[in-house]
Design a protein around this nucleic acid. Sequence first.
DNA 1: TTTCTCACA
DNA 2: TGTGAGTA
Length: 138
Amino acid sequence: MAGDEIRRNMALFPIGIVMKLTDLTARQIRYYEQHELIQPARTAGNQRLFSFNDVERLLEIKALIEKGVNIAGIKQVMNPVGDGSDEPTVINEQSEVKRREMTDSQLHRMLKQQLMTGKRPGQVSLIQGELSRFFKSK
DNA sequence: TTTCTCACA
DNA sequence: TGTGAGTA
């Protein structure tokens, strides 16, 4: 149902609310926006307005950050956000799950690529906690 | 009061 | 990332 997607993508709350909802600072939220991890709408007064989808995305980002993944890594794990020409933004739980399963293979591929490419000092930190997921059972 | 952009300890 | 400045 399209109505659901409309509600999820409807810009509703200002950054102050999002800060409480995600436990992120305004600085971080704006920073992630700069890196195109999220794309909140703007009011006539240039105020950011976030949708439920933006908040969920922020929570995912937060989770990754806590695992030790940096912006570069998150960019590779998150969906390509670019110019919005794409934006199917999961409609039902089933596709939500499917996307999670995909994330693991993408992450594995990402890690492999990085390990083979030969990591530079700055990018080495990209993995950390994520690696344990592949070395342990599961 | 809240948020915005910009710049720097 | 934090934080202060100066606005809107």
